[in-house]
Design a protein around this nucleic acid. Structure first.
Lengths: 332, 332
DNA sequence: TCGTCCTTTGACAACGATGTCACGATCACG
DNA sequence: CGTGATCGTGACATCGTTGTCAAAGGACGA
């Protein structure tokens, strides 16, 4: 900038004015400065500008997701991006992979970078460690999981209710022995879905059997292994509830491997792009990701714009999408 | 920081030393400063630090992808992230949606933010506009598409060769009337795949027919519409080559709608997570996304670390994955 | 006792930019 | 022609840090 000023024969401040399109600079000076800018290839430095100007504003928001390469996280990221675009806010995205330590260090990194806000799909169980940052005014919106130990905005779906829908659907089709495939019980969402599963059975007067419940499944392969074991057991389930999309995918594979794809009912939690053309088409409890993303972005930017009302907890209701796999009846 | 210094009764510089773990500070002073830091909730400001220190380094890299919510882009992003994590480099991610104007403005934004490097899956046709930034030392690695008008690193797959594999495979199974579904011809990748398709037919002495070639398809729905039209025509194709994964998905849907899912052969370009359990399982030309991501990250960080050798153009060879849909023979 | 060296600490300028204010020139008006 | 308002421009301090250099104090040997 110094060089531009020298080349154009003006002061630093005048270059600043031209670069920021401030009014009150004569046309010929503006032209001279602009010529110097292009000639020298000068680029405005946003970091320095923000340092001087805003009190800590960086025009960036952080997005800490479970895994940016899974479709749920990626879609959320995309929704946030669409909302951020209009405001020229950049998004710093990272994956947590359910690792609490990583969440802590990434939050720390984003705070050091002075992001204007944070979208968090937490991997940690307790969130007290965020209290200082929240108190100092950093907007944080939780997504998919509720904050625990601090109070701040969240957007979640009714996971227990969703599980209930799935189970009720299977019960209505005559199933009494329903397998459960779930993720780590330390993950809030996974736990709630399991609880919903158990509650639905209990309310229907059906006895649950831990023998057909597999948890701590992290990947499709885990689900394949677990379900294969169940199918080969003496008293196999007639239906399966897979409480996460990647587990449903594993379940589909396992059913195919065992050649019972059309005979054992399957309902998944969380839709995914091709669920309608797998064989048989997968019945799922669907979370409206676009809606979640929209709500998250709305809350986050409202806070950034100074909304200081009490924290809101938006809970969206999932929806059962009937496609075929969940309507298979048990063999007589 | 000023407040911390005051509370601890030391100078600014000493606080700086403690915060940066510089040697030569006595233990009791260190302790006093650290107490003040936690007491005041002081957070180190990376932007200011980088401003003073590095000559423009920001510990961020930009990733401009086609669409962070599609599986190809998302996986690339994830690979980059894994490489960046060790170095405490943050990733600023954005989607271009094949809009040249957006590419330009986002690049501008990232340059203003002084990112240390750029991963670019370009939406523009010519890239001369990057010359200034490249000359001034900004590392840019192109992915999926080659730079045009400037010379800088790139990692691509052999798209023409991939198309050829697909077509040869279909020809070998007896097909002579093969439909082509492709994206906008303005997209380099899409164009090259189409050229590979035509070349493979020509080399086999099979006459191509523009009547069964549909381009400028942007979405699965476009592919459904186009393929449905072809299937309903007087002389329908016996096989389909869908030159992008979302178009293959549309094709599968169209084949199902028309009830010919097991009768018309289909090969897709680019694998996706569930291609093995759709009905029939989809034969694809697969790009090894993890490998692409790995190569991109390697190039980018090598440049950031000062590698000034001549630009490299890594071309990876795709691979035909046979699953069933591509091995259907034409009806007699 | 004095000079020297080492350790620990602080004063100051600078990174790249902008808000504040003041200055000189121009202009309209009575 | 003097006065005050208006316009265009620049000097300077400052945002939050850190590199440089020097100073204070103690340890040690001669």
């Amino acid at each position: 900038m110094r060089e531009v000023a020298a080349l154009a024969g003006v002061s630093l401040k005048t270059v600043s004015r031209v670069v920021n399109r401030e009014p009150g600079v004569s046309p010929d000076v503006t032209a001279r400065v602009e010529r110097a800018v292009t000639q020298l290839g000068y680029r405005h430095n946003l970091a320095a500008s923000n340092l001087r100007r805003g009190h800590g504003r960086s025009a960036m928001v952080g997005a800490l997701l479970q895994d940016v390469s899974n479709s749920f996280s990626a879609s959320l990221l995309r929704s946030l991006e669409d909302a951020a675009r209009d405001r020229d806010v950049a998004i710093v995205a990272s994956s947590l992979d359910e690792e609490p330590a990583r969440e802590r260090s990434l939050v720390e990194g984003l705070v050091r970078r002075r992001v204007d806000g944070l979208l968090l799909m937490p991997a940690t169980e307790r969130h007290d460690y965020l209290a200082d940052d929240l108190r100092s005014g950093l907007p944080i919106v939780f997504v998919d999981r509720r904050p625990n130990g601090v109070d701040t905005d969240s957007v979640t779906v009714d996971n227990a209710g969703g599980s209930r829908m799935a189970v009720d659907h299977l019960l209505a089709h005559g199933h009494r022995r329903i397998a459960f495939l779930g993720d780590l019980p330390t993950i809030q969402t996974a736990r709630t879905r399991h609880e919903g599963f158990l509650a639905a059975l209990r309310d229907a007067g059906v006895e649950s059997d831990p023998a057909v419940e597999a948890t701590s499944l992290r990947s499709p392969d885990d689900a394949i292994a677990a379900l294969t074991l169940l199918l080969d057991s003496a008293n196999p389930p007639t239906a399966v509830f897979a409480a996460r999309n990647s587990l449903a995918i594993g379940a589909i594979r396992a059913l195919h491997h065992r050649g019972v794809a059309g005979q054992v009912a399957l309902v998944g939690f969380d839709d995914f792009p091709l669920a309608d053309i797998v064989d048989p088409p997968l019945t799922v409890v669907k979370q409206n990701v676009a809606m979640i993303g929209f709500e998250v972005a709305k809350r986050l930017f409202a806070r950034i714009d100074g909304d200081t009302s009490a924290p809101q907890h938006v809970v969206l209701t999932p929806e059962l999408v009937v496609r075929g796999s969940g309507e298979i009846r048990p063999e007589q």
